[in-house]
Design a binder for these strands. Structure first.
Lengths: 214, 214
DNA sequence: ACCTGAACACCGTTCAAGT
DNA sequence: ACCTGAACACCGTTCAAGT
């Protein structure tokens, strides 16, 4: 917009993009105002012209991340399949940028979440649920996604290196004080822990919802 | 143990207790090695004789927190009620020390979680579920608790001051771009958001489980 | 308006040293 | 063995100043 001075003023979006690129490089836990500024070759203090704190920048970055995740399937699917797709897409998005997980509980949810809510209510009311049931279903489902992704990140020990016997830390803790019962359970334990967390909880929830409908 | 030199050597437990007291004073997000050391009137570096990093100290502190939470009700309750009690007790414990929530996804689960698992499997297999179903039910339930407590902490804007109209930040975001649909939903919105998150999701899950049993 | 530089009050962690 | 002191390489944020 300005004259050809080479460097036009940066806007909020530029800092949000920079923040997301830092996050995908080093993770949310290592992002810093200095790093974000460095991506834009700008002084660390420039960020404060656009966001009043690190938390505000992260809140905006999370909202942008959500809007880029694009979770909606074909609208013509029956509600059970539509919901399963949306939930799995949310889970996949968060699992692909797992470092968001620890801060999910401390950041405000923003504008783009409301778009997802609208779609959810539209679909479920169309299927015969009341608006209230639909809204409650949405929050139940979000709970499951967040919980699942927390489980995933806390059950597998942060970085599982390549080879290794692939025994999760919790499985190891479980077998440190063995008992008759534990030895009986142990074979199940590792497979259940390693399974995709949504595979059991999501069908349970959908079944619960279906039983409300009829 | 040593002579009456006034100050016997500190053990791991002393540092864990100090960490928990710092957490209950200032929250997990503000704990630091220096603060923990200060509680014990000791050099910050003393902590490293017992824990090799801050993360290890936090992992031990979380495990201790879990063991103190004491979630088990009367064993004679039918499984649905037993489970509802355990889940609500877990939720209440985490809600009372809400600052744990953000780190739940990044800390390893420790020994004391395995005790809870054992009790869960015992109860559910006694009610007719297979060991595998019981274990999966446990993880589904943990997902719900973690998700619910994340929702709670991220839906209410960190600190809701006393009076105020009590409109959650998400509700406000929802009404910033109103539409016919949104105005219709709005009255529900705030009440659903403010409700205890488990009140809807937990019955759904239990209903789903019950339908598996028969 | 937007950005910079220096400074303040903190961090986690290492290392050599004390008793 | 257990703890200390000083130091290193970082943080978020404030403030006065530059253009």
């Amino acid at each position: 917009m300005s004259a050809g001075a080479g460097k036009q003023a940066l806007d909020q979006q530029a800092f949000i993009n920079a923040a997301l690129s830092v996050i995908s490089d080093v993770g949310v836990e290592k992002i810093s105002m200095r790093r974000v500024a460095a991506v834009l070759s700008v002084s660390p203090m420039a960020v404060y012209k656009h966001f009043s704190s690190k938390e505000e920048l992260l809140t905006a970055a999370l909202d942008e991340f959500i809007s880029r995740s694009d979770v909606f399937p074909d609208a013509s699917l029956p509600w059970e399949q539509w919901m399963e797709h949306v939930v799995r897409a949310m889970y996949a998005a968060l699992a692909s940028e797992i470092s968001w997980v620890p801060v999910l509980g401390s950041l405000r949810l923003g504008e783009n979440v409301t778009v997802v809510i609208d779609a959810f209510i539209e679909k479920l009311t169309g299927a015969g649920f009341t608006p209230e049931q639909s809204l409650q279903a949405f929050f139940s489902v979000i709970q499951l996604v967040i919980g699942a992704v927390c489980m995933k990140s806390s059950l597998q020990g942060a970085l599982t290196p390549e080879g290794d016997a692939q025994v999760s830390p919790l499985t190891r803790a479980y077998l440190e004080n063995p008992s008759a019962r534990r030895l009986e359970i142990a074979p199940l334990f590792n497979t259940v822990v390693q399974a995709a967390p949504l595979d059991h909880s999501l069908p349970l929830l959908i079944e619960g919802l279906r039983s409300r409908l009829t």
